[in-house]
Amino acid sequence: MSISGITNTATLGMLAQQKRVANIASNVANVDTPGYRRLNTNLNATTPAGVSVTTTVSETPKAAPDTSNVDLLDEMTGLIGSEHAFAANAKVFETGADMWDMLMSIKKD
């Protein structure tokens, strides 16, 4: 894989986590909204490298008709997972940028 491919994959990963956090924020904001149905974030690997993101509405039954089906524990767990995934992608992007810098300094010499 090329350096630009590495940074592109990391960028797609960070954008995917951004969408996941946005869905989690919507779920948390609507936890007490009657009839609200939780948003799920689906991440799928793409070829040759990357990720695609889709959002679906949860079909999980509600505890009661006048409540939402959002579980705050699940949302906070997902938020922690997103934080770690975003940080990992950011580190990969940073490493790719450092590789570009090194390549440019070698090319100048």
Rank of each mutant, 00 (worst) to 15 (best):
G35Q: 07
T46F: 09
V28L: 15
K19C: 00
L79I: 03
A29F: 03
P65C: 04
E59S: 14
T9Q: 14
G81D: 14
N23D: 10
Q18Y: 10
I3K: 09
A45R: 13
I6A: 15
Y36H: 02
L72G: 02
V92W: 07
G96V: 07
L12T: 05
V28F: 04
L12W: 02
G81H: 09
A10R: 06
F93C: 11
V51E: 05
T7Q: 10
Y36E: 04
N30C: 04
G35R: 01
K19P: 02
G78T: 01
P61C: 03
L72R: 08
A49W: 09
T46G: 12
K91G: 12
G81M: 08
W100Y: 15
G81F: 00
A64S: 12
K91I: 09
S2M: 01
T46K: 10
N89L: 10
I6K: 07
P65Q: 03
F86S: 00
T56S: 15
T56A: 12
E75C: 01
S68P: 04
L72C: 02
A90M: 12
A97N: 13
P65V: 05
S82A: 15
T77D: 08
A25P: 08
R37F: 07
E94G: 08
G35Y: 01
N8S: 15
F93Y: 14
N89R: 02
T55C: 06
S26V: 01
A88K: 08
S4L: 13
D71G: 02
A29L: 04
L39G: 10
G96T: 09
A97P: 00
M102G: 03
V28P: 06
T47R: 01
I24Y: 05
A25D: 12
H84W: 12
I24A: 07
N8T: 03
I106R: 13
G50R: 06
D98H: 07
P34R: 03
P65H: 03
N44V: 13
L39M: 12
A49D: 15
Q18R: 13
N44F: 14
S82N: 07
T9M: 15
G81Q: 14
N40D: 15
D101R: 14
G50I: 06
T46R: 10
A16Q: 05
S68C: 07
V31M: 12
V53L: 11
R38F: 03
L43T: 08
N8V: 00
M104S: 08
V21D: 03
A49T: 08
P48N: 09
W100H: 06
D74H: 03
T67I: 05
D98I: 01
N44W: 00
A25L: 05
N89A: 13
L72N: 09
M99R: 10
P48G: 06
P61I: 00
S26N: 12
T11W: 08
E94A: 11
S4W: 13
S105W: 09
L79A: 12
H84E: 00
D109V: 01
T60K: 13
